[in-house]
Each structure stands twice: as C-alpha cells, then as structure tokens.
Simulated scan of single mutants.
Amino acid sequence: MPPSMPAPNIRIPIELLTPTAFAQFGTAVENPTTAPSAKLPVPHRIPPPDSVSANQGFATKYLDVTHMSNLYTLAPSKKPAKAVMNMFACAPRNLRPHEPSESMPSSWGDLELDDDDDDGGRDDCERQLLDIGILERHPFTTQTFIPMGLSAADKHTQYLVIVAPTLPASASRRNTARPPPYPTPKLERRRSLKDIFARARPSPYSVDTAPPPSLFSRLPPSARPKGPGLPDLKNLRAFVATGGQAVTYGAGTWHAPMIVIGDRPIDFVVVQFANEVGIEDCQEILLKANNASHEGVVVTVDTDASGKVQVKAGVGAVKAKL
C-alpha cells in the first residue's frame, strides 16, 4: 500500500496544454505550425525548435523536440537503467455528476467554478467531476507519452495531463508530521584539488570570481532533480491534450496516471528509463480527504455537446473570472 497524505478540499479547472504553460513540468510535444498554441498571442508562445528540410524536401524535421533524462546515478541502489518502451492501453474514465461546492483552486485565486446555472451555464455544456485519488512520479527518469490512432481534430476523445510541483522536504515533514515518504540521496562526488582551489576568490583557473555553475543548474527547471518532497496539491494543474500532442514528464514530476476522457480508449507508447528497482522506477502517494465532509482533490470537466473538453482557465479559456 502506498503512503498517503491529507488532501485539501479543492477543485481544479482545466487548461489548454501548451509548451509555455507546461514548461515547469516537462515538455508538450507538438507540431509548432499546426498546434493550437500556434494561434496564441506571442507572449504565450515559445520559439519553435530548430528545423531542417528532410526526405528530399517532402518533410520538415524538427530537432530535439523533447529531451530524455537518465538520473539513475542518483538512485540509492546505483543499479544502471536502460531505455524501455512500453504501451499503455487506457480506457475512458468514469466521471461523477457535478455537485455545487464552495471549494476553488487556490492556484487560480477567486476563479468561480460553481456560479453557473444547474445546467452548467450553457444548454450545450455538461459539467462533471473527476476525483484524483493518487499521484505518482518517476524520480530518476523522464517519461514520454505518445498517443496512437487519435486525430488532433477528434472532439469525442481527449486526454488529461494532471501535474503538481514538489514541496520542499521541510514542508513535507511539517505538513504530515513525518519525513517525506521517499528520501532521495543528494548527489555526492569527491572533490578534486582543482575543485577546492577553484572556490578561491578570484579563481586561480580563470578570471571568474565564482566557481562555474553545477551541471543541474544549467538544465531547465523541468529537467532538474525534484528532491524527496511531497506534491504541492494547492498548486496542482490540469491540462487537456489532443491526439496531435505528446507529453514528456520531467524526472521526478508528480502526476496523475494518464486519464482519457471521451468515447474510446487511447493507446500510448511510453518511453523512459528503468532499472527494475520498484521504488526507484515509480513512487506513488494516495490523496485522502481530511474528513468525511471534504471531497478532496477534484478536477472539473466541462464538455460541449460533441464531448469536447472545454478550457476553463488560463490562456484560451472560454470563461475565466480572475
């Protein structure tokens, strides 16, 4: 049985999955010319990846659209990992009927999710609820989910990407009265004489007045080790993705299992590293409401008459009171 943590009474709106919005947690992989985010205002777009002509001019090759990270040298067992490719055949989730609630997502301020009429505020829009009872992470590897057989234009089936930042280890202990569930060792390396003298001011090896930054400091935030902390549930976020998007979770990013919304299953090819040490490959945490009067962590899912998930927060929202 995985360890558990108390969950606040909170409802999370759905955002559009874009590379900019998701950058803290990993990479949204998409065609930069045809993806929904290509139509967003410039401040909400990131530069497209470099590209070259390929296939005798009949293709455009986008370079380094996502990055795989293998951090298993930090794992307690020191057992090497290998690249693996699995498939997850994910069936659509059962949602429960909408019920009014006073809870609202703190990460979105005073976003009023339940001020609509009983029919969801629109005759062609249905509101349902998705309970989030578990999060997981892969502390030493990225994990890329690639949907197969799902059109980018499919309105009847989509999938949700639900992620949370990582709390500092000290906050995890304070909020649960116990240490974090999965202590992750710090990277330890023996310092050479050059390293020791390089901390002098000024450095004897350059004109710099400080030692060079560490390897991890050069990486984007999503690619750095996250530490052993619990998920920050008050800043949990939910994104809706189409068949034209793949997603890479940064190593150690807390996320929900892949969630399909709609009419039919989605098959995902999943690429990651693994060393077959269970607690190092995957770690889980159960989310339990504080008491019977609380519902815990819930994502509000609004769909139109065709079944297309409606975006309720962030850029591209159909309705947001911020």
Rank of each mutant, 00 (worst) to 15 (best):
V42C: 02
A169T: 11
V161W: 01
V299T: 06
A256Q: 04
V84C: 11
R174C: 02
P41S: 12
A274T: 09
E30W: 08
A317R: 12
E99Y: 13
G26H: 00
Y159R: 08
V269I: 12
V52I: 15
I14C: 02
L71M: 08
R122G: 00
E188N: 12
I132T: 11
K61F: 08
D115T: 15
T184G: 02
L287E: 02
P32N: 07
R137K: 14
V29Q: 02
V311Q: 05
I266W: 01
Y205Q: 03
V240K: 04
I162L: 05
R45F: 02
T34R: 10
K319L: 10
K61P: 00
A21S: 13
Y159C: 07
M148V: 13
V163F: 04
D263E: 14
P36S: 08
N235H: 15
A200F: 10
T142H: 01
P225M: 03
R178L: 01
T242C: 06
G307H: 13
R190G: 02
D302P: 09
H67D: 03
R127P: 00
G278A: 15
F25T: 04
V299H: 06
R189C: 05
L95Q: 02
M148P: 00
P204T: 06
A292V: 14
G109H: 05
S172M: 03
G149E: 07
V277Q: 10
N235V: 03
T242H: 03
H255W: 06
D304Q: 11
T144V: 09
T248W: 00
M87C: 09
A59I: 11
F197N: 10
V297T: 07
P265F: 10
I261S: 10
P32Y: 04
L17Q: 04
S4R: 12
S217Y: 12
S192A: 08
G262W: 01
Q283V: 11
W254G: 08
A210D: 11
G26K: 00
P228D: 07
A7S: 15
M85C: 12
L236F: 04
L236K: 02
P92H: 07
P2Y: 08
S51R: 15
S206Y: 04
L150K: 07
D114G: 14
V318F: 08
E15Q: 15
A256Y: 07
D110M: 14
A59R: 14
I14A: 06
I10D: 00
A81P: 05
M258T: 14
A23L: 04
P6V: 13
D195F: 13
T303W: 00
N291R: 09
L150N: 03
G133I: 11
P76A: 12
F273Y: 14
L215E: 13
Y205S: 06
T20R: 11
C90S: 13
P180A: 15
